[in-house]
């Protein structure tokens, strides 16, 4: 059994890297990846804590599954939107100003 500090550390690192990616990248897909990293951190935290507690529902594990599922759904929508953006203006740069009608 590994000591919970290590996974916790990993959670922090993953979340930080994800946040950095979100803030630093201008490509929408890379931003998506950053978000995925952050979600992964959350999932990891759930699993870690879930393994430490004796929850009859296994809530930690099931939450992780839910998060992954939701993330998948979101990615689907996100890719669709990014596609639409690309069609509309030819790039997927998230640092470009929005425009009016």
């Amino acid at each position: 059994m590994i000591h919970p500090v290590l996974p916790m550390l990993l959670v922090g690192i993953l979340f930080g890297v994800g946040l950095y990616g979100v803030l630093a990248r201008r490509n929408a897909v890379l931003v998506l990846i950053g978000v995925e990293l952050m979600l992964a951190a959350a999932g990891l935290l759930f699993v870690t804590v879930g393994s430490l507690t004796a929850d009859p529902l296994r809530a930690g594990q099931s939450m992780t599954v839910f998060i992954i599922t939701i993330a998948a759904a979101e990615i689907a929508v996100a890719l669709a939107v990014i596609l639409a953006v690309f069609r509309a203006r030819g790039n997927i740069d998230v640092s470009q100003r929005g425009s009016d009608d």
């Binding site: 994800g18 929408a28 978000v35 979600l39 959350a42 939450m63 939107v81 953006v85 929005g98």
Partner: peptide, 30 residues
């Protein structure tokens, strides 16, 4: 329209990050 996709992109990025933060919050709650 162009303005709609721009708006959607803005909404999308913010919502994704927020979701990640919320999920993290939920995990911390747990």
């Amino acid at each position: 329209r162009r303005s709609a996709t721009d708006g959607a992109l803005s909404l999308l990025t913010t919502s994704l990050v927020s979701f990640a933060i919320t999920a993290m919050g939920a995990a911390l709650w747990f």
